[in-house]
């Protein structure tokens, strides 16, 4: 039975329709690149108001997240990702999409356990491991170099 399983899984892999890897990659490049250019425009706008590049990055993130939330609410962002894949998911607008979409979806389950808890279903892991990794990296760098 186990050999039959292995054989069948191998057959499945052989016959499985291929993912359109090249097309996905090109679309991810274009969509991701364009979102970053939009981000650059916003950052440039804030820099024009007299901020340094570094100071401008925080308000830029806020505006992009606002746009990501708006596009998700209007039902456009899932279409951007359907074509752009990681080009839509990886930018911070995708992070907004990951928070807004479950909150919208579970609105019918109430404000506390529906919206409140579900905001973090997809974004939670990113925050947990992002924060932990940043802390570990900061601590190691502090130990090794003496300056964090």
């Amino acid at each position: 039975m186990d050999s039959e399983k292995a054989r069948y899984q191998q057959l499945t892999q052989e016959m499985m329709p291929r993912r359109p890897v090249l097309r996905n990659a090109i679309m991810a490049f274009v969509v991701g690149g364009l979102i970053c250019v939009v981000g650059q425009c916003i950052q440039w706008f804030f820099m024009h108001q007299g901020m340094s590049a570094k100071e401008a990055s925080s308000p830029t993130a806020v505006v992009l997240i606002g746009l990501g939330a708006l596009f998700t609410g209007l039902g456009w962002y899932d279409r951007i990702v359907k074509h752009g894949g990681m080009g839509g998911t990886l930018p911070i607008t995708g992070f907004a999409n990951a928070m807004v979409s479950p909150a919208m979806e579970f609105r019918t389950e109430g404000l506390v356990m529906g919206v409140g808890a579900r905001l973090f279903t997809v974004a939670g892991p990113v925050l947990v491991y992002g924060m932990t990794a940043a802390m570990v990296v900061g601590a190691v760098r502090w130990l090794i170099t003496g300056v964090a």
Binding site: N24, D78, R79
Partner: peptide
């Protein structure tokens, strides 16, 4: 996934 979460379906 939630409906409005963007993701790509596999073939």
């Amino acid at each position: 996934f939630p409906l409005e979460l963007g993701y790509q379906r596999t073939p």
